[in-house]
Design a binder for these strands. Structure first.
Length: 491
RNA sequence: CGGGGCGUAGCACAGUCCGGUUAGUGUACCUGGUUUGGGACCAGGGGGUCGCAGGUUCGAAUCCUGCCGCCCCGACCA
């Protein structure tokens, strides 16, 4: 492990790339655009999965699994949907290889061409709605509340670890309802679940809103989203929840008999978060020393490093550590005792900082004499000496304090980098000098949105849900506007 | 697909312009010893088809031609 990470101020994206690799989260794979998620990175993803999965179950959803491959014909049934995804689909055309007589190795067997080509799912609406047609007949079958954990493929031109890869992991919820109102409530509920998760577990503050027509999910009537700010001031979409109306029900002929005996199309939703959240987690909190993980998502919350010269010193320290470990485990805190003699304490300190372990306890001969330990918190790098018999309680509350403090720091940063402007000149000046979120009036047209994007690279991240109506003039066209929208450069 | 850059040890790079001992440095790795409260030190050691294929030459990491791969900037996107 070589020393020193590139600094955020010098080169933010180099800092991100190096951090992901050096902290052991992920690396590039031999397959262009695809990543290898390494054990430590996957452990964090698993914590996210466990937490979200429980939240989905608590709101009445069940997990299921649908195929990786989607018949091409399914895909074309919903016009907007196919248009949105067509340009980035991987397609399976053959089902067999054969020995290559001329060049050696293997080659695609031209005899083994599929009659109907298969799309590698970029999302599963079509294959799932095809099943729903058979699952739903009556109002008694509704609502149908399904989630799946899966991988999907979108053939991206340019990729970055976690933020944009050709294959990524995610969850996709797909629900069907008897009424429009209920489907909208579901869409909004899942947005709330995502907001709750991202703010309270990832410690990243979010803005909730709806997407403009340009940014809407292909096939949705309305797309809700949560937007987070990274430390370079750019926005990252952390989750989306779509109200699908009856679009997919009509495309796949999913009807149900109402109580009154009438036949009606069902109303749908879909919602998802992906391994992209890993990117958000990293970019929201980490510093030039490495990762900063909020305690609620850290695979290891506490690490204990012994400092010793002689073996009997280590034995004494281990005994003291054992007590602390038992106490922490009893509180449900994950703890690791690193008594490897292959690395020096200083090396370990740097290593655990790189990996973002929230709390480090050091115990040395001096502590053994005084009945104390040294407690260091990762987020602020503060160190303090704590009596050994008080350390378990101390850490119990420290983790809570850190979780809140990491969120507060991110929230303060976001607020300081959020601007409200009334002129296009101001708008451009801010984007050039101090990037961040910008609230501005917009005339509601795609043309204006498109022009601003071309001229400044900033896009409308969302139309905020909780902002109050306010009369104003569009910063670009001068036409009347009833509400400010959120602009930013986005990942 | 356009424009730029780069392929030399696990990783990061020097050497290439101007061809010439045995291809080098840092780091990582292995062995031994001394160390251990912020990435230890000393000594010894292993590891290379210099991206691939041709060509020029007495001689190629170095010059020429072709190909492949990767990265960055654009067009496209979660």
């Amino acid at each position: 492990m070589s020393k020193g990470l590139p600094s955020r101020s010098e080169d933010y994206s180099l800092w991100y790339n190096e951090l992901v690799k050096r902290a052991g989260l992920a690396e590039n794979s031999p397959v262009r655009g695809c990543m290898v998620i390494k054990p430590y990175g996957f452990a964090i993803w698993e914590k996210m999965q466990q937490t979200l999965d429980k939240m989905f179950k608590d709101t009445g959803h069940s997990n299921a699994y649908f195929p990786l491959f989607i018949p091409k014909s399914f895909f074309s049934k919903e016009a907007d949907h196919v248009e949105g995804f067509a340009k980035e689909c991987a397609v399976v055309t053959h089902y067999r290889l054969k020995n290559d007589e001329e060049n050696g190795g293997v080659t695609v067997d031209p005899e083994a061409k599929l009659e109907e080509e298969l799309i590698v799912r970029p999302t599963s609406e079509t294959v799932i709605w095809d099943s729903y047609k058979n699952w739903i007949q009556s109002y008694r079958d509704l609502p149908l509340l399904i989630n799946q954990w899966a991988n999907v493929v979108r053939w991206e031109m340019r990729t970055r670890l976690f933020l944009r890869t050709a294959e990524f992991l995610w969850q996709e919820g797909h629900t069907a309802h008897a009424t429009k109102d209920e489907a909208i409530k579901e869409t909004e509920q899942m947005l709330e679940v995502y907001g709750d998760f991202v703010e309270n577990f990832m410690a990243v503050p979010v803005i909730k809103g709806t997407k403009t027509e340009n940014e809407r999910f292909a096939g949705a009537v309305e797309t809700y989203c949560i937007e987070a700010m990274m430390q370079d001031g750019r926005a990252l979409q952390a989750g989306t929840s779509h109200f699908l109306g009856q679009n997919f029900a009509k495309a796949f002929d999913v009807k149900f008999a109402t109580k009154e005996g009438k036949e009606e199309f069902v109303w749908g939703t879909s919602w998802g978060v992906s391994t992209r959240l890993m990117g958000a987690l990293i970019m929201a909190h980490s510093d030039d020393q490495g990762l900063v993980l909020p305690p609620n998502l850290a695979p290891t919350q506490v690490v204990i490093v012994p400092i010793y010269k002689r073996d009997e010193e280590l034995a004494n320290i281990s005994e003291a550590a054992k007590e602390i470990i038992d106490g922490l485990k009893a509180k449900g805190i994950s703890v690791q005792f690193d008594d490897r003699d292959t690395h020096k304490p200083g090396w370990k300190f740097a290593e655990y900082e790189l990996k973002g372990v929230p709390v480090r306890i050091a115990i040395g001969p001096r502590d053994m004499e005084n009945g104390t330990v040294e407690v260091a918190r990762r987020d602020t790098k503060e160190k303090q000496t704590v009596n050994r018999d008080a350390v378990v309680d101390h850490i119990g509350s420290l983790l809570d304090v850190m979780q809140k403090s990491i969120f507060e720091k991110a929230a303060t940063f976001r607020n300081e980098n959020t601007h409200t402007v009334d002129t296009y000149e101001e708008f451009k000046e801010i984007l050039e000098t101090r990037p961040g979120f910008i609230y501005a009036h917009w005339d509601g047209t795609s043309e204006t949105e498109e022009k601003i994007k071309t001229e400044t690279k900033a896009t409308i991240r969302c139309i905020p849900l909780n902002s109050s109506p306010e009369e104003g003039k569009c910063i670009y066209s001068g036409k009347p506007s009833k509400q400010r929208v959120l602009f930013a450069k986005a990942y």
